[in-house]
């Protein structure tokens, strides 16, 4: 059951890669914002880190992650305690949380933006959500980023238009803090997996998704990446992982998250094999 499979979607590959972010977390609240991060956190809780805590995305903590989408009238969720918004902040500020969020912009310092785009804050070119919980999350607990489309509009040159979360920027470091107080973990994109363990907390490539080249990643990132001597390939999902993902997402909502639902292995060889299989 632990053998890697050959047929899987990119969404499924990214769910498994993103689940790794929560492997060593221990007993913390895992919050995945969006379908793929939520499935990733749920997969981690169902497999290698059963100590994780999770909400129903509304007001209760669950001992068992809810499947996503309509669950039928007879479904009863496994409530553990009430966890309304006001209590969420008590958890956030305790540090016992790891959120995986999807910023619109990320810069070389790991600062992120979901607030607004444009150079004039008082008259933004595009008003987005607002800073939401990014400032508090980023200074209180670990955060990972999920990027469904790796490009230079996301990984921007220079700083984010509105810095909504604290990163590894010495210029902005508050008095009494060191850069090591900031805790940004993994970045999972449609091209690769990265972390912030390059020199001076720079963004470092960890693995390329099957069929993706180093050049593709470099061309689509607006700043310089740290590239280790050896860069691995993101591991394919196992049959066991795919079976659990299917249980967590019975309506296959994951297939609608990435444009055209690409296959997980985008190498020419894999494309040939897929053709032959048809």
């Amino acid at each position: 059951m632990t053998q890697a499979v050959t047929q899987y979607s990119l969404a499924e590959l990214m769910i498994c890669a993103a689940a790794e972010a929560f492997r060593e977390d221990g007993e913390v609240l895992a919050t995945g914002i969006g379908v793929i991060p939520r499935l990733a956190a749920s997969l981690a809780m169902k497999t290698f880190n059963p100590d994780l805590m999770m909400t129903d995305s509304e007001a209760y903590l669950l001992s068992e992650p809810n499947p996503i989408g309509n669950r039928g009238d007879d479904f009863v969720q496994a409530n553990e305690t009430w966890m309304g918004f006001s209590r969420i902040f008590d958890n956030v500020w305790s540090g016992k949380r790891h959120a995986m969020v999807g910023p619109t912009q990320i810069d070389k310092y790991g600062q992120a933006n979901i607030s607004a785009l444009g150079s004039d804050y008082h008259k933004p070119k595009v008003q987005m959500l607002g800073v939401r919980g990014f400032p508090g999350n980023s200074i209180s607990h670990g955060n990972s980023f999920f990027v469904p489309s790796h490009n230079k509009r996301v990984f921007v040159e220079g700083e984010c238009d509105m810095v909504a979360s604290i990163g590894y920027n010495p210029e902005r470091l508050p008095k009494g803090y060191s850069l090591d107080d900031i805790d940004i973990r993994l970045v999972i994109t449609d091209l690769c997996v990265m972390d912030w363990k390059g020199p001076n907390h720079s963004l470092r490539l960890m693995s390329l998704h099957p069929g993706v080249t180093l050049e593709q990643v470099k061309e689509n990132t607006g700043f310089e990446l740290s590239i280790p001597d050896t860069v691995g390939v993101t591991p394919a999902p196992t049959a066991e992982q795919l079976a659990i993902i299917a249980q967590l997402d019975p309506h296959n909502i994951r297939a609608k998250q990435l444009k055209d639902n690409p296959p997980g292995d985008r190498s020419a060889n894999a494309r040939e094999q897929a053709k032959e299989a048809v």
């Binding site: 600062q111 607030s115 804050y121 800073v131 990014f134 400032p135 508090g136 980023s138 200074i139 209180s140 509105m162 810095v163 909504a164 979360s165 604290i166 990163g167 920027n169 902005r172 470091l173 508050p174 803090y177 900031i182």
Partner: peptide
């Protein structure tokens, strides 16, 4: 609170 430190929230 520590919230907002290091971000544009304290600048704008």
């Amino acid at each position: 609170t520590q919230i907002g430190l290091g971000t544009d929230v304290v600048r704008v």
